[in-house]
Design a protein around this nucleic acid. Structure first.
Lengths: 230, 230
DNA sequence: TCAAAAGTGTTAAAAATACACCCATGG
DNA sequence: CCATGGGTGTATTTTTAACACTTTTGA
């Protein structure tokens, strides 16, 4: 193995990913069961070391793909964690990203090294290794804050969705009920929801209209100083 | 010199600081003129390498003290920059902090190695080394966004300040004029401004009342779910 | 025909905005 | 006595919040 030598000691640099998903029940987070020490058997966020030839975001996406099979997801930097004892082996600084995916379209696969990978309900989390519980709390707070004034919630839904799905999403993230009529007026008034002229299929009640988020129009409006808000 | 060897190569890890200050004229940022390559003679943000025995925030504060003499300031993590070529010497990842200080109370001193240290007006910046211009843009955007819903603006003022000073601060950061009567009503309605029962001295017109921000009361209110807003 | 969720407007309360004059002080 | 900024209230508009019934569909 090649050795790498520096004049001064360096912290190890890793990336970790908090991947949020949503299904009919709950907001979920993607966890990996550790197969090696430290924290063997405990659940933890997917992540790993940053290579010299990749940016931080590339590293986060690569680790996510390697460990969970996920690709082509919304991802954004969250925060960098650098407490002295956060990894018992040595000093490790971790740049943490959070990602949003919709569970329908993104199937996770077992990681190459056969570690467990699973979506876990946020309200009922297992014990986590490292400082990952704290990291998750920061990510949740960010999601809660950001979903109000940036259209990132759509990343958690299929491309075509009903207004009820959208409302439930906001209710789960914000952890409070919303008024149906006020919500529908609010999300439709900015003109960013495109009526697909289709209805959902196979439901045992009146079928709801499907909408999709108009990304192009949003990009245009942004250039004119438009601020998304819900 | 001691050598430090690792199995895999590691990026260098630094911290940089975007220090904002405010005076009668402008919003300013603290810059250092580089005495050594790369970018010799160019201005740059203060910063340096992270030691193994200090957290990221400690590193940022230490560098700030060493290079500018500033201590006891409001400081918060901004973002971590990890583009491949941001430092021409080698791969460097930088965790950037932003700080807010008031220019009256915090005198800067020349750095130990006699590099220039100076407050520079944001509207009239010199050319900056590295990707520091980009970093500054991110910091400004953060300041602009955050000042609306967190009471961080007070960090830029002396402990006792007039309402006009406060209004000018917001006008400079948000880059838009505010209505005097509406502003005064707004900032006073949450009860977080304490009347010092003093007036400013030595002005050639009616002396304004001095106020201070009630940190303790703010902390109390926060625990009850209060959200600051201006 | 029933159960289950979709869809739809109005009214009242609260918040944001626009706006102009008198006051106190030092030079 | 005047120039300079300090200080104050009200009316209008906009935004938010509260609230209940009819419609459609498949089982």
């Amino acid at each position: 193995m090649m050795a790498h030598t520096y004049d001064y000691p360096r912290p190890a640099l890793t990336v970790d990913c908090v991947v949020f998903g949503l299904d009919e029940e709950d907001l979920k987070v993607l966890l990996i069961r550790r197969a090696i020490p430290p924290f063997t058997g405990k659940w933890a966020l997917p992540g790993g070391f940053v290579h010299l030839d990749e940016t931080l975001e590339q590293a986060a996406k690569r680790e996510l793909a390697e460990e969970t099979g996920l690709g082509d997801v919304f991802i954004e930097q969250l925060y960098t964690f650098g407490a002295l004892e956060r990894d018992p082996r040595e000093r490790v600084v971790s740049v943490v990203y959070y990602a949003l995916v919709n569970l329908r379209d993104h199937q996770i696969r077992a990681a190459t090294d056969a570690r467990d990978v699973a979506w876990r309900s946020i309200p009922a989390l297992p014990e986590l290794g490292f400082d990952h519980r704290e990291i998750l709390a920061v990510a949740l707070a960010r999601l809660k804050g950001k979903v109000r004034y940036q259209p990132i919630g759509f990343e958690l839904l299929p491309r075509k969705f009903t207004l009820s799905q959208l409302q439930k999403l906001y209710e789960k993230i914000l952890e409070k009920p919303l008024d149906k009529r006020n919500f529908r007026r609010k999300v439709q008034e900015n003109g960013l929801l495109l009526d697909c002229r289709e209805t959902e299929q196979g439901v045992a009640h009146r079928a709801a209209r499907l909408y999709r988020f108009d990304r192009k129009k949003y990009a245009q409006l942004c250039r004119k100083g438009f601020l998304f808000e819900i």
